[in-house]
Design a binder for these strands. Structure first.
Lengths: 226, 226
DNA sequence: CGCCAGGTTGAAGAGAATCAAGTGATGTGG
DNA sequence: CCACATCACTTGATTCTCTTCAACCTGGCG
């Protein structure tokens, strides 16, 4: 194991190193056991940028707490969110050598950072990179299918996806704002909000608070997905 | 080089083997020169299926002539085209071990087929797979951005993309139908058609025939893309 | 010549965006 | 501890884009 550093945020998202260690990879590989690779830890305040578009993509990031979004801002101000990353998920791997999107903390988040080159000395590393790339591709392809659907279908898909990812029964605590959801689904915040209240009126969901959503009728949501 | 077979189509798209050889990979790799890997050739009639969704994804396909589309049909009959593949481009690589979409010949097409496992005996093969996967991911991410745009923006993006890929000056011969274009862009054929005539009326393009498109004002198209 | 698939055009309608106002939660300073 | 400011979300009215439904071209091809 190599030297490790942890980085903590200041108020404005500045980074302060402090010693730490942690595993990069989430899934134990049956053949070899879990892989742990030296890295540094960093904390980011809500909305702090983790990296910017077009910066060299020489690091990988694993969320240890909080939530991260990757997003692209178009010239006319529209914003597109490519993905949300929850604890245990890894982001930052790009098809090229530069980041295609920026990454930001949706809520206060901690990430483990590993240099891509550092890791190349470990066996099975290439396998892991391929696995991550595959997952990104699959995610992107599912996202594509999402964007050709109607608003209720998109929202239903999103709710079921989030529910499956946080797996906490029928109650989902969304870490992200309506704006984030809207930019992920390719809708406006008004449409997202209206669709949610519509679901609530149909008793498909309950909304104890804006970000807490109870799935009361999963079947109805699944029927929507088509 | 291993034994090679070529397969030709019958009227209904059936396959008849015949000896042949050809390179799988398009790009010469500077360090080692072009890689050529044994494979079989096959021809497919217009609209013939090359593989179906959920079939094992154990082969790679390189288009040698014609055009191929990958598509998914949703339960309600809507169809989504994930990508078009032109001569020289490789398709069939999936994030999992099953095809996520089916592949069909847009027009009569010839493809070179290589078994994924066959190829593992060649050096640099893993690199090549990674490169292909990267390209797919990039393609998917650009497609995502497309789908959050307006109809004119999508059509303009599509025209410029096709023009760049066939690089035959300002004249583009589209191999695919309006339906294919529409299903790729997430629009209806009527909207695609209307948008094209609108471009024509603005002298941005000319339409000598339905499938032949002359880009008269690339700048106007680029301005649209935002 | 006439058929037929693919493409275009028109009119009407639906769905989401936009514009605008209101409500509710959160946080801050007096 | 409360008043107020701010931000996030919701709701309503209107507009606009794209879809839908329908009719009509057009170009190959028997």
């Amino acid at each position: 194991m190599l030297t490790e550093l942890t980085i903590q945020r200041s108020k404005a998202g500045h980074l302060f190193p402090r010693p730490m260690r942690g595993p990069l990879l989430a899934e134990p590989r049956t053949s070899t056991g879990p892989i742990e690779i030296a890295g540094s830890r960093a904390s980011f305040a809500r909305n702090a940028q983790i990296y910017r578009e077009k910066e060299p993509a020489d690091r990988l990031y694993k969320v240890t707490s909080g939530t991260v979004r990757t997003c692209k801002v178009l010239v006319d101000g529209r914003r597109h969110i490519g993905a949300f990353y929850l604890p245990g998920e890894t982001f930052g791997l790009e098809p090229g050598d530069r980041h295609m999107a920026s990454a930001e903390a949706v809520i206060d988040a901690e990430v483990l950072i590993v240099r891509r080159c550092t890791a190349s000395t470990f066996p099975f590393w290439d396998d892991e990179l391929t696995r991550l790339m595959s997952r990104e591709l699959q995610r992107a392809q599912e996202h594509l299918l999402l964007l050709i659907k109607t608003a209720p279908e998109r929202v239903a898909t999103f709710l079921l996806e989030m529910s499956a990812r946080v797996r906490s029964g029928d109650e989902v605590e969304l870490p992200m704002s309506r704006r984030d959801v809207a930019d992920y689904l390719g809708l406006t915040i008004e449409t997202v909000s209206r669709t949610l209240t519509q679901f609530e009126n149909q008793s498909v969901i309950a909304l104890p608070t804006a970000k807490r959503i109870v799935l009361r009728n999963r079947l109805a949501l699944k029927r929507l997905i088509a």
